[in-house]
């Protein structure tokens, strides 16, 4: 079994290293938990996930580490109105991705109409949208050259 020290550094670990933050074993685990989160966990949820990897991690350590990560700008705090601060990796603007299935190229895009549409769909289903994920897989359309005589 791979220990956290042996595993490849997660994106957040690399971001911490780039900012000169010393990475202890427990901080590394917390960074990994956040990096692998596909949702917006609150501190207690991060603690639960981290403690499942290393039972020696305390809630106080998680609080301290996450405050540090937030201070150096590698995680973002969200308030979804439920009274609990939730976190995700800081990724800048919200983009979607189109993946060229033949080359592996990834094209980032933003579309306000799409954002409006999914917000409307969630609202229609009785929900406030708090997140979404869209990946388009496509093949580039081959354009016909000029007709030759």
């Amino acid at each position: 079994m791979t220990t956290p020290e042996e595993a490849l550094p997660s994106r957040l670990e690399r971001a911490c290293a780039e900012r000169g933050l010393k990475m202890t074993g427990q901080r590394r685990i917390i960074a990994r938990v956040l990096s692998e989160a596909a949702d917006h966990p609150d501190v207690e949820e991060v603690y639960r996930r981290a403690a499942a990897i290393d039972a020696g991690i305390s809630l106080a350590t998680v609080y301290r580490s996450m405050r540090l990560f937030e201070e150096i700008g590698i995680i973002q705090r969200h308030d979804f109105g439920d009274g609990r601060a939730r976190y995700e990796e800081a990724r800048g603007d919200h983009h979607h991705h189109l993946i060229d299935i033949e080359t592996g190229e990834v094209v980032e895009f933003q579309d306000p109409e799409l954002e409006a549409a999914v917000t409307r769909i969630a609202r229609h289903l009785g929900f406030d949208m708090i997140g979404q994920r869209l990946e388009i897989f496509g093949r580039r359309i081959q354009r016909k050259g000029p007709e030759t005589a």
Binding site: R11, R91, H97
Partner: peptide, 9 residues
């Protein structure tokens, strides 16, 4: 490229 775009692993 997805990882570089900031997508979770």
């Amino acid at each position: 490229e997805l990882v570089d775009c900031g997508r979770p692993d």
